[in-house]
Nucleic acid binder design. Structure first.
Lengths: 114, 114
DNA sequence: TTATTATATAAGCATATGCTAATATAAAAA
DNA sequence: TTTTTATATTAGCATATGCTTATATAATAA
């Protein structure tokens, strides 16, 4: 639990963002892995534009961070967000989204540019 | 944690419902108290119609139960809902909404028809 | 019965949302 | 430089959302 609880309206805003299947999936994925946009496009079977627009909302709210590496922009969960603890609590109730990610890995389709 | 985690899209639906300040406040209130519609109207300073429409959404989703007592219909949290555990986890991150309820109590405005 | 009270429902409307299609930008490769 | 690749942004549109106003329903009181 955070030392200071965010105001209820701020919490409602976070829940609203998570109340979309695509965004909840994205947040679930980035909780454990850095992912780039093209991976979300693969995993979620959505258009690049649509994924980018969802990512922008998450970034604007501060729930995810981005980091450029060459061509790719990697997104990760922002554990500094005032509601990060709540989001983690929520994600414990969400089925593991890593299976498809591991499939990508097996297929050699994961991006890795360290 | 529930034995079986709901599908991610069902979880997203619940979060979407909670992603509204009015509904999140209602769920926070009914977690600990049975409340009737007129109490929500007082506490949330919203129209009866609007409150009723939010309550209907919560009831349709099974998150709250209703029970008629004479004139009044009392709403309470449905702890049998597949996502009840998650909702309780979320509410731990929400500031206590009972203060205003206690004010109503002091003012003798709470409904009690047992 | 009629009137009152608490609540629900329906219609209408302004705004928000999420998608697609098209275009822009930024980094790397040729 | 030009081209390619990954991503972002914009515009347009159909649908969803949440409110208000008006009306309906259900239980009780007169």
């Amino acid at each position: 639990m955070e030392k200071i609880k965010p105001e209820i309206k701020d919490t409602a805003s976070v829940l609203k963002l998570l109340g979309d299947n695509t965004r909840l999936s994205i947040v679930s994925l980035v909780q454990n892995h850095e992912c780039c946009v093209c991976e979300f496009v693969e995993l979620l079977e959505m258009s690049q534009s649509s994924v980018s627009q969802h990512l922008r909302k998450l970034r604007d709210a501060g729930l995810v961070k981005e980091k450029r590496k060459g061509h790719w922009i990697f997104y990760s969960f922002n554990r500094e967000h005032p509601s990060a603890g709540m989001v983690e609590d929520i994600l414990r109730h969400v089925p593991d989204q890593n299976e498809k990610l591991q499939q990508l890995e097996r297929d050699g389709l994961r991006i890795n540019c360290d």
